[in-house]
Amino acid sequence: MKNLRPALWLAIALGTAGCGPVEPWVKPYERERLADPIMSWDRDPVSASYMKHVYESREGSRGAMGGAGGGCGCN
């Protein structure tokens, strides 16, 4: 059991490290490129929705065709 103690402490230390506040590694003022409209997954929703419809009408696979969220926090 004694031999396991350092490993146990290490596991606890690593496990609790994730509970602290996360420091964003890309700061809000560094997100100019991500906020550019050309970085949208689907720049034109009416077109993206139509192409999903075209594919799903002719293929056996369904789902997971869209990217939701952008996460740039640029508001």
Binding site: P45, S49, H53, R62, G66
Partner: peptide
């Protein structure tokens, strides 16, 4: 199959980030 994509409301979900609503827009 035409209906499946639409049931996911793909047409209405703008690719916006959370925390900000998508722009006013008509297509």
């Amino acid at each position: 199959h035409a209906l499946l994509a639409l049931s996911c409301c793909a047409a209405l979900s703008a690719p916006a980030q959370a925390g900000v609503l998508a722009e006013d827009r008509a297509d």
